[in-house]
């Protein structure tokens, strides 16, 4: 691909690497300033470019990954306290507050709802499949 048709390829490569670093290390205590430095960006250039590219700041992106992972762990029956520790949150109260702000449920409420859904899928899986597909796939016989 020519440079003319593909603008600033080196910037994109570095930005994608920085984003993938967050993808790999979001559960650790990572310092977003270091990520900008490692990708050879100034802090503000990195922030601006990341937001323009991904529609959210690196910090907002990191938070969204942690919340998603928290949802997965809670769905897998991990106790709230352990989820909080596993994702590097400072305290259970800050984790609970952040989780509730994003998910509109407390971690405990979310876990209960997820358990209910899991039980329902395990007991009556076909209640969760559009019937026309279940029929065509031969699952109703």
């Amino acid at each position: 691909m020519s440079e003319a048709s593909y603008p600033k390829i080196y910037l994109y490569k570095r930005l994608v690497e920085a984003k993938q670093y967050i993808d790999r290390h979001f559960a650790e205590r990572i310092d977003l300033n270091n990520i900008a430095g490692a990708a050879y960006f100034s802090k503000y250039h990195f922030l601006r470019l990341f937001k323009k590219t991904y529609g959210r700041t690196p910090h907002q992106y990191l938070t969204s990954l942690r919340i998603e992972r928290a949802k997965e762990l809670l769905s897998a029956d991990m106790p709230c306290g352990e989820v909080c520790l596993a994702l590097g949150f400072e305290s259970l109260s800050s984790f609970t507050r952040l989780f509730k702000r994003h998910v509109k449920l407390t971690p405990a409420e979310y876990a209960a709802k997820a358990r209910q859904m899991k039980d329902s899928i395990a007991k009556e899986p076909l209640n969760h499949v559009p019937q026309c597909f279940a029929e065509k796939l031969g699952w109703l016989e």
Partner: peptide
């Protein structure tokens, strides 16, 4: 939201592109 960044990331994960980003 940004095709060049998405293209780079997916390519780095081994996704096969049959057409590069084109205006």
């Amino acid at each position: 939201t940004d095709i060049y960044a998405t293209y780079e990331e997916l390519k780095s994960k081994g996704v096969e592109f049959t057409k590069e980003p084109t205006k």
